[in-house]
């Protein structure tokens, strides 16, 4: 038996909107730790890892570890029927081939339940090692989204370079080139508006903008985004989900032929 009650149901709606275009089908894993997902896109270029910790739910009952295969597009269709202020409860019985999403309006005057068919998904779980990154950039998530959107109108790839000068996002295309440099800026009053660059050593990597733009669909989840870069690893683009966990996107770099 599984019963997870999330008072801030809009978080789950936002999570789905941020992953449904990247991943078609995925297993949601439920354990004492929380509600999680790890999935790759169909071409194995990007990986998404989501964790919503059990403590973040108002009520969290998960009698035994359960993996529920869901079509994310269908799940999104159902969650779109929940109001932004609704409380969402996810329910499943042991051995059942369905999951139920219950939506309660804040005033309890409307209660809806949507039952969705589960699916069997053969998914490969990957081990993501703890790593030291050459550079970690934290910046406003809206600023990062704007940069990715702007650069994708010029080129298909972005070179992200971190030096002591700052972080530079560059692209080139048929019509020309573009460079955007963001410098460390901690003087602003609000910490979520600051740009913080931790650099152990300079790093420069090239990524497909199509994926970066897809990751920025998670922007409504967090004011800040953290970009961790290492020349030996996929980049990690992380959005913290307030008091609950995170959504992390890993993207393999372009490699010189």
């Amino acid at each position: 038996m599984l019963e997870l009650r999330l008072v801030q149901g809009s978080l789950l709606k936002k999570v789905l909107e941020s992953v449904k275009d990247l991943v078609t089908d995925a297993n949601f894993d439920c354990s004492a730790t929380g509600f999680s997902l790890q999935a790759m896109d169909s071409s194995h270029v990007a990986l998404v890892a989501l964790l919503l910790r059990s403590e973040g739910f108002e009520h969290y009952r998960c009698d035994r570890n359960l993996s529920m295969g869901m079509n994310l597009n269908n799940m999104s269709k159902m969650l779109k029927c929940a109001g932004n202020d609704d409380i969402i409860t996810i329910k499943a019985d042991d051995g059942s081939d369905t999951v139920t999403f219950m939506f309660e309006s804040p005033t309890q005057d409307k209660i809806a339940d949507f039952e969705m068919k589960l699916m069997d998904i053969d998914s490969e779980h990957l081990g993501i090692p703890e790593a030291e990154y050459h550079a970690i950039v934290r910046m406003p998530s809206a600023e990062f989204a704007r940069i990715c959107k702007d650069l994708s109108s010029i080129g298909d790839t972005v070179v992200i370079s971190v030096t002591k000068e700052g972080v530079k996002f560059s692209t080139r295309g048929d019509i020309g080139t573009a460079n955007i440099v963001c410098r460390q800026n901690t003087s602003v009053d609000k910490p979520e508006e600051s740009t913080i660059i931790e650099m152990n050593e300079p790093v420069s990597l090239t990524f497909a903008l199509r994926y970066m733009n897809s990751f920025t669909k998670a922007t409504p989840l967090a004011n800040s985004v953290t970009i961790s870069l290492s020349s030996e690893l996929p980049v990690v683009v992380e959005y913290k989900i307030a008091e609950m966990g995170y959504i992390r996107f890993y993207l393999a770099p372009k490699i010189e032929d």
Binding site: H44, L126, Y250, A252
Partner: peptide, 14 residues
């Protein structure tokens, strides 16, 4: 020219 890297060449199945 560059080619697209693959997640599976960085992270191993567990």
């Amino acid at each position: 020219d560059s080619k697209q890297g693959n997640i599976l060449s960085f992270f191993k199945k567990v």
